[in-house]
Simulated assay, not measured.
Amino acid sequence: MSMDLEQCYKELEGDYAEVMRRLRKEELVHRFLIKFLESDEVQRIDEALQERDYEKAFDLVHTLKGETMTLGLGRLSKSSIILCEQLRYKIYGEEMLQQFRKVRMDYQKTIDIIRKYRDSQP
């Protein structure tokens, strides 16, 4: 069963209309979504947090936040914004780690949806 880009965005809890206003062409949105599958920021954030390198973690989360906002990846964008602000204001500890777990979970859901979309294309 084929999934179109608009259906994909609905599952991502993203704003399809806003992404189309920003990037203007479905083919461009499609290409960037597929490219997002190569993202390894979440793994790198995990490593930085384990090393307690919060500055590096902040830089990585900030990059993830920017990518997800540009691509309109609703659910993942919202959770990465919160984590970014926690790291920006040095709110470390269990609450921040809990938010990272949410980001990791949202990332996995996002990747799964994008793969489903990609694999449904003719």
Rank of each mutant, 00 (worst) to 15 (best):
M3V: 15
D4G: 10
L5S: 03
L5K: 05
E6W: 01
E6L: 08
E6Q: 15
Q7A: 15
K10D: 13
K10F: 13
K10N: 14
K10L: 14
E11G: 12
E11P: 10
L12M: 09
L12H: 07
L12K: 09
E13L: 12
G14Q: 05
D15N: 15
Y16F: 15
Y16L: 11
E18M: 11
E18Y: 02
V19L: 01
V19H: 00
M20H: 08
R21Y: 14
R22I: 03
R24H: 09
K25D: 13
K25F: 15
E26A: 09
E26H: 05
E27S: 12
L28D: 07
L28W: 03
V29G: 06
R31S: 09
F32N: 08
I34P: 01
I34A: 03
K35E: 05
F36C: 02
S39T: 05
S39P: 04
D40K: 07
E41L: 03
E41H: 09
I45W: 06
D46N: 15
D46H: 12
D46I: 04
A48Y: 00
L49Q: 12
R52T: 14
R52V: 13
D53S: 15
D53C: 12
Y54A: 09
K56G: 02
F58E: 04
D59L: 07
D59C: 00
V61H: 06
H62Q: 12
L64T: 04
K65M: 03
G66W: 01
E67G: 00
M69R: 02
M69F: 03
M69Y: 03
T70R: 04
G72T: 03
G72P: 09
G72A: 07
G74T: 10
G74Q: 07
R75M: 11
R75Y: 07
R75P: 04
S77Y: 10
K78Q: 08
I81V: 12
I81G: 03
C84Q: 04
C84E: 06
R88G: 02
R88P: 06
Y89Q: 11
K90P: 05
G93M: 14
G93T: 13
E95I: 11
L97K: 13
L97Q: 12
L97C: 01
L97A: 07
R101D: 14
R101N: 13
K102Q: 13
V103D: 05
R104W: 04
D106S: 08
D106G: 03
K109Q: 00
K109M: 01
T110Y: 01
T110E: 05
T110W: 01
I111V: 07
D112H: 06
I114V: 10
R115S: 01
K116P: 04
K116M: 06
K116F: 00
S120L: 02
Q121I: 15
P122E: 15
P122A: 13
